[in-house]
Design a protein around this nucleic acid. Structure first.
Lengths: 246, 246
DNA sequence: GCAAAAGTGTTCGGGATACACCCATGC
DNA sequence: GCATGGGTGTATCCCGAACACTTTTGC
């Protein structure tokens, strides 16, 4: 997949004079697995950073956008249809981030719902996002940026739809929130918050209680499966009645 | 400044096969001028988009980061020391965003305090951000993205420090907030909010009242001149006393 | 004294957490 | 009936907006 070194270097020297540079798309793909926030990484078999873990992604092709590029490249790691959300994070451009050759990288945040278990290649594995293995280049800090972004957006958007399966009980959902946020989230209040904001709704069906009894849990679903800002302007909101003021 | 077309095209064809692409840094430079949020634009004298207005910026050089690049290029438009804040916005990669040649652009948001009036070149002018002239490429939508970012960050960070002069009265500050947010902000409440959050402090000095009388206004300053998140986790905050909960 | 602008005190309401209590089910 | 887990009601607190009132100045 990589261009041979000699070729890459030669083209680089010529092209950089013309304002060109190598560019790759990377993705922080997150999923809640067994109650833990995990990130999809692959293990580099070749130098540089041999043996270290890296984010999926790779070179941008001439006629594709960055979004299309990361979708194409993720298809080699997971079924792209498994991705419930994808958004751009940031572009890293430190000239030394790749010691071999100057490479810009645009990072994306991808989310996979908790109910599916994509088949991944042999070199690829899910790692707890809170306990990363030795990682190549600046990829560890990119993972942390993705985690921060997810945590922030859980507070003011409906991005939970991308972590949860199509239907879920409130205790399941609070488990996803706990894993992503890193702290307890009371199911009873989460329910009210998300209902008031119009993020979720009851399906009308429920799940039979387990062997130890207990009231059957109602099934909910997210009302929208695309990103919506549900709590904009926490402060400094526009004045006047009807705008959220007094 | 631009590389001649023939040269650029030829290098592009060769280089794109090697995974290289043209990359530029752009900046949405915003300043409050006469009570209005304005953006710094320059008028293109040559095709493509001749006569339309464009964001300052240009090609990334081989050994500079994007941040360094946009700072260098802004130096041709405004004194870089005038910039009170600079942060990355997003990277645009639509293959057709520049019809002449495939170009990636990483946009930055730059802020200039309200008290200075940088000297700008002849082709460059401040335009109201709410009423943009005909703009080149996708630059109009980038300006809107920068405006959205600023508005959001005024609510949960201390980014106001980058809009205001070193010292200011509360009515001046509420004017900056009004211009940036697009709605009225009561100075009396703004004072309390920013004081409680520890964003601003009194200098101890005050401004003599004007010809028409009135109590002299106290002078304030921001306590930090670098970006701080002062109101994280508006909702779904960690449980337990001492963490912001009950 | 009066107008004008700044600053303070107070009320109000929304929204989020915490917690007690009620409901439905399995055994 | 009782344990178990889900759901509802309610108290409390924080915080921002609104607004009346006080303070300090110029004329």
């Amino acid at each position: 997949m990589d261009i041979p070194e000699a070729n890459g270097q030669a083209a680089g020297v010529v092209a950089q004079d013309a304002g060109l540079s190598a560019h790759e798309a990377l993705a922080v793909v997150l999923q809640i697995r067994r109650g833990e926030l995990c990130v999809l990484l692959w293990r580099r078999a070749l130098p540089p950073c041999e043996g270290e873990w890296a984010l999926p992604g790779g070179r941008l092709r001439p006629e594709e956008s960055l979004g299309a590029s990361i979708r194409r490249q993720l298809a080699q790691k997971v079924d792209v249809r498994d991705l419930s959300h994808l958004e751009q994070l940031e572009t890293r451009s430190d000239p030394d981030r790749n010691p071999q050759r100057r490479t810009l990288a645009t990072a994306y945040l991808g989310l996979v719902p908790a109910d599916i278990d994509p088949v991944v290649p042999d070199d690829t594995r899910w790692h707890p996002a809170a306990d990363l293995p030795p990682m190549a280049f600046d990829h560890a800090s990119i993972v942390r940026a993705g985690r921060r972004r997810l945590r922030a957006k859980l507070s003011y958007t409906n991005v939970g739809f991308a972590l949860a399966p199509p239907e879920f009980t409130m205790s399941e959902l609070s488990g996803y929130y706990r894993a992503a946020l890193g702290h307890d989230v009371a199911a009873t209040n989460l329910r009210r918050v998300l209902l008031r904001r119009g993020q979720i709704e009851e399906t009308g069906r429920s799940v039979p209680s387990g062997r130890s009894g207990g009231r059957p849990a109602a099934l909910f679903r997210f009302r929208s499966l695309s990103l919506q800002i549900t709590d904009a302007f926490a402060v400094l909101r526009p004045p006047g009645p009807g705008s959220g003021g007094l």
